[in-house]
Design a protein around this nucleic acid. Structure first.
Lengths: 216, 216
DNA sequence: TCAAAAGTGTTCAGGGTACACCCATGG
DNA sequence: CCATGGGTGTACCCTGAACACTTTTGA
């Protein structure tokens, strides 16, 4: 390390995770009620700091693991937030990440240990700091991405019915979709494999269970 | 500041600017030849550090100003790069920004003072560090954004002809466009104002000069 | 008068949307 | 035998792509 670097300031760098999951047919977000200052008792995103020899992406994965017990989850950056006053406790530059997880696979014990709660998007409380902007940006990112990439499967179990899949899209986009058009579009995507198994939990006839073809 | 923060590491945070401009009908990028280690004598993006009470966005604007003399330029984040080894000199987490500038308005003196050069995209040398990935991401960002927002006007002077505008799109997208379809699409965008002035520098008949309507 | 760039509409194909009925089965 | 959710095809519209000729005027 040479003088060139020493002239400059160093900063705390954080990651904040916008964690989405599907619960009872609604898009939910995982929030924590802060136990510490700053922002004590206010709702916020789960965050953490980037440590010495850790990449920023790894820090996000670590924070997600800590809260949900999930590893190797698909996460994407939604933006970096670097206003000097954004965290009233200290200058923290934060990189925001978005994660899509399968609600049924996460570790509920960890969630409650972290004082966290799943909240439907339409009942979201006002968040601390600049977290409202972060969530807004994450949602925008999600709605745009959904049109281009088969990412919604992250919300579902390995096997799922077309009705379930449609519900996920409807929850994300916030609008009802036409069943026939939806199925046609999915078929054109050509990413599903019919398992031949029927799920009779929700109908007498039984709905075909599909899974995502491996390459996706 | 409390103990909660003190347990964590602090990092140098940088900004790297991918600066695009249009020169002789080609999309160019502004690169510097590094005068210092690490990466001495190699080509790279113009960068800088985020200082104590400066927002990350402001740091990017400052770096852009230093190199081009331009202020209040439209810049957008293209991503944050945080692998521990990305800068061999020290751990630097870098936020990459993309700027679209009007080539004719920039300060050439500053560019040469900074040992910088405009390079057409198709003649770009191999860049130092992870800058090749940064540029790739910026280009992807630009090509996608162009479809959705009227941003290409940033490359042009206040008054411009439709032919000029079409050339900008062609340079960005890397393909020729149909003149009539192009004009129809632009008309539908409904963001241009006909000034009634003719530019006779390139044709005897003269091409109508347009300008962007203020609200955009 | 001609070379050189500006300007202008129509046709066609493909994708997206609207829409209604039969199927299988458990109770 | 019927209520419940699963599954399927067609007609229309609109957007995006292909395509060629007339206008103006300085040299």
């Amino acid at each position: 390390m040479n003088e060139y670097y020493n002239e400059h300031s160093r900063h705390y760098v954080g990651v904040d995770c916008v964690i989405f999951g599907l619960c009872e047919g609604k898009l939910n977000i995982l929030l924590i009620k802060r136990k510490m200052m700053p922002g004590k008792d206010r709702w916020s995103l789960m965050g953490g700091f980037v440590e010495e020899d850790e990449s920023v992406d790894d820090a996000a994965q670590r924070v997600l693991y800590q809260l949900t017990g999930l590893e190797n989850v698909y996460m994407d950056q939604v933006g970096t937030f670097g206003e000097p006053g954004r965290d009233p406790g200290a200058r923290v530059i934060s990189v925001a990440y978005c994660a899509l997880i399968n609600f049924d696979e996460h570790d509920r014990q960890r969630v409650s240990d972290n004082n966290a709660l799943w909240v439907p998007l339409d009942e979201m409380p006002t968040l601390a700091f600049d977290h409202p902007q972060i969530v807004a940006k994450a949602l925008e990112w999600l709605r745009e991405k959904v049109h281009r990439r088969p990412i919604v499967f992250r919300f579902l179990p390995e096997l799922f019915t077309l009705r379930q899949l449609q519900s996920v899209y409807e929850a994300i986009l916030g609008e009802d979709l036409d069943k026939r058009n939806f199925r046609k579009r999915i078929a054109e995507m050509d990413v599903l494999e019919n398992t031949g198994i029927k799920d009779k939990r929700h109908s007498k006839r039984g709905a075909t269970l599909y899974k995502l073809r491996i390459e996706n």
